[in-house]
Design a protein around this nucleic acid. Sequence first.
DNA 1: GCCAACGTTGGC
DNA 2: GCCAACGTTGGC
Length: 185
Amino acid sequence: MPPKTRARVSKRTANSDDAGEKVGGKRKAAASESGKTEERSEPPQYCHWLMKSEPESRFENGIDVKFGIEDLKALPDQTGCWDGVRNYQARNFMRQMKNEQLAFFYHSNCKEPGIAGVMKVDVQYQRMLKRFLPLSELKKYHLQHRATGGPLKDMALFTRARLSVQPLTTEEFDFVLSLEDEEPL
DNA sequence: GCCAACGTTGGC
DNA sequence: GCCAACGTTGGC
């Protein structure tokens, strides 16, 4: 395992379980979201993702959770691991991922939240976007599209606000990518 | 630093 | 299996 790379870490005291591997030992079935809607009956088979991470220093139980896209890029082979995800839906999405699929690297809880670049889901840096896409701009498109029926009308970033690992449809992914060639809205 | 939104826990 | 209390996320 590569150096200690953390993303979106947050220690939970209660049920700190494992954050990534065995859900097999999950006692109590975690009341809520073992799998309710997301992958129960027919997994919609996503192939694009958005993953949130914090690019600014923040200490949690004495550990700095800072992990921005530049930190990924700086690792050997520009490759790291993505730990610290505890939310069941987020973890379930991670299990659906296939190596080589692409994910947006989203900077959260920072001065300027937004999408910074692209990585493969086996956590390998791909590239920076030609321009940073601020949350505020994405939100404008989202609102606009909600009214007019555009590609970002249901984007999980806005409809599932606190989910740190989320799927994108191909339409959403392509539209967001197309924004790097546009003037800021 | 505030706090709204919302996920999780646990008593019933 | 409901739901109130609690804890966390994350934008602002």
